[in-house]
Design a binder for these strands. Structure first.
Length: 554
RNA sequence: GCCCCCGUAGCUCAGCAGGAUAGAGCAACGGAUUCCUAAUCCGUAGGUCAGGCGUUCGAGUCGCCUCGGGGGCACCA
């Protein structure tokens, strides 16, 4: 909508230039805003103030010139006025808004889509939790934010691919295998102390029990080295399957699951190291191999091969991100927990060393989640193996509320997740407020149908009967949806969607309280039903982006 | 010590690439239902935007400093 306004203003600028009233040596970026105070009209622009210096004219004078050209429009602009230091306030005609409302109905499920992405190939990697235990709430926030960000980017015209990177290599896998092996022995009656540095979560016992039920005692008496590969493999597969199920139950699907091991299997890691070596970006010191990341804005150089000969996580990450680029992705977005922020500079460093623009790689740091139960913060200690899993929270409060709560805050803010509020089916809970609105709209359509008041096929309705102010407040809000999607995509900020929906729906509830949709007046009823149809589409599309259900009845 | 995030109403948080008189939800208080779902609506009250300095026509927003909260500074992932 704003781009339409922007175009109108640019046309006015052009006309003023042709007539010689403005020089326009530099073409300004026309900023269109929606004034907070409706007295200031529907839209305003600061372009006159921005031009003041270059034109060597009083901003109000420039604004007045522009207003003359703007008012000579095509019946879309109702009035153009100069205000304050040089704002231009535009008031649009009813026709302007009603025309646009018609297109909402036409667009249907695709309403809200924009094309700012222009098909840019983007890879969005998130969660990527190590397969050493079930997902906890922190992963859940990452999963929800990543999933929804993916949907937003798709709506905004990006060619998005979502990916889960499986760290199935390294010491942790051995630790997982050993943990399972020891639990197995304990369950089989052996008196063995459980080492401190292993995974002590109860889920390990579940895995061990499953091995017992499938394989019985056939591992008893064997040496650890002999059985470890089996235990390691079994535990990894088992836990990974659990992670997949948790994500699936949470409505999160990935386009790819990418194995770290595969990068070793196909020599990608070796090739990447070879390349860096040729370029003289790596050197040996103290028996280890280092990357000269400090030459590219990192604090220090980083080890990629330990003195033991093992390669670090960072080492395979180099190959992994190179692989992403080789697959044709032009933008690499990663979602990491806030605790990984120190890792960003080295990743940017290596990409820059490889000759890529360091800005093609973008990391979104998602801050921590604190669960609050009955006003008390729930302590989360991973060491003890006792923590709130994503699956438990979903089970307790449901998918819709869980997703909403994870999405409602800016991801660089800490999140207090109040379980009691999330569970409530009262107005305290914002999810229900929005879903209720959708159900209410559906209810209006049921009533309309009962009274034989349906919309004609093709949506050819005369909207002129819509005159009340509240209708236009609502229409304007509905029409803002694509801009919200656009901005969410540009800023990589998912919380804008739930905020917008809450706003939108509040305007609807107010309208509902004041105006009856289904009346004896057929033309009016049809016009209002049409408005409701567009509104429902916007609400449904918004909820769809968040992966939250839009119930027809509550 | 260095780096990242946060600090806005009693609580939880928005604040749109610097714009007009700083907003919402919850909590508090007072109202609204012959009629499409009261899971709703309307109204009242509530603020030194942590503090200071600076940048400019204009700063909650940008820069620097101080204070407070969280996180990170591995040959761990």
């Amino acid at each position: 909508m704003k781009t339409t306004i922007k175009r109108l203003i640019e046309e006015a600028l052009e006309k003023a230039k042709i007539k010689g009233e403005l020089t326009l040596a530099t073409v300004p970026d026309v900023v269109v805003e929606s004034p907070k105070d409706e007295k200031h009209g529907d839209f305003s622009t600061t372009v006159a103030m921005a031009l003041a210096r270059a034109e060597r004219k009083n901003p109000r004078q420039i604004a007045e010139t522009l207003c003359r050209y703007l008012e000579n429009g095509d019946g879309l602009i109702g009035s153009a006025e100069v205000a304050g230091p040089g704002y231009i306030n535009l008031k649009m005609t009813h026709r302007f808004f009603l025309d646009r409302l018609k297109s909402v109905a036409k667009e249907g499920e695709t309403y809200g889509c924009v094309d700012s992405g222009r098909g840019l190939k983007v890879i969005l990697e998130f969660v990527s939790a190590n397969p050493t235990g079930p997902l906890h709430v922190g992963h859940g926030r990452g999963a929800a934010v990543g999933d929804v960000l993916g949907r937003i980017l798709k709506k905004a015209g990006y060619d998005v691919s979502t990916e889960y990177y499986i760290n199935d290599v390294g010491n942790q896998m051995n630790g997982l295998g050993r943990s399972t092996w020891i639990r197995y022995l304990q369950l089989m009656g052996k008196e063995i102390e459980f080492p401190k540095d292993l995974y002590r979560g109860d889920y390990i016992n579940d895995v061990a029990r499953e091995i017992i039920s499938m394989e019985g005692d056939r591992f008893l008496g064997k040496a650890e080295e002999e059985v470890l590969p089996f235990f390691r493999r079994f535990a990894t597969d088992n836990i990974l399957a659990g992670i997949r199920k948790d994500l699936d139950d949470f409505g999160v699907k990935f386009d790819q699951w990418f194995s770290e091991q595969s990068l070793y299997d196909d020599q990608s890691v070796d090739r990447a190291m070879e390349w860096l070596k040729e370029k003289d970006f790596i050197y040996e010191k103290d028996g280890a191999v280092w990357l000269k990341s400090s030459a590219f804005q990192d604090d220090q150089d980083r080890v990629i091969v330990k003195a033991t000969g093992e390669r670090t996580y960072f080492c395979s990450d180099i190959a992994y991100h190179q692989n992403k680029i080789n697959r044709g992705f032009k933008k690499l977005i990663n979602l990491w927990g806030a605790d990984h922020h120190g890792y960003v500079p080295r990743m940017k460093a290596v990409l820059e060393a490889m000759g890529y623009d360091r800005d093609l790689f973008k990391v979104l740091l998602v801050q921590f989640v604190t669960l609050v139960r009955e006003g008390e913060k729930v302590s989360m200690s991973t060491r003890s193996g006792e923590f709130e899993t994503l699956a438990d929270v979903v089970k307790e409060v449901g998918v819709d509320a869980t997703r909403y709560f994870f999405l409602m805050r800016s991801s660089d803010s800490h999140l207090d997740f109040d379980l009691e509020i999330a569970k409530k089916e009262t107005p305290e809970n914002p999810v229900f407020y929005i879903q209720y609105a959708h159900a209410r709209i559906c209810s209006i359509f049921r009533t309309a149908e009962e009274k034989g008041m349906t919309l004609p096929k093709g949506g050819d309705v005369d909207l002129e009967p819509l005159q009340e102010e509240e209708a236009f407040v609502l229409i304007k809000k509905i029409l803002a949806f694509p801009a919200v999607v656009d901005r969410s995509a540009a800023m990589l900020e998912v919380h804008r969607i739930p905020h917008y929906l809450h706003d939108l729906v509040a305007v609807f509830h107010a309208y509902y309280a004041k105006h009856r949709v289904v009346t004896e007046d057929r033309p009016l009823t049809q016009a209002r039903l049409f408005l409701m149809m567009c509104l429902r589409q916007a609400v449904a599309n918004g909820l769809d982006i968040m992966g939250i259900s839009a119930p027809g009845k509550m």
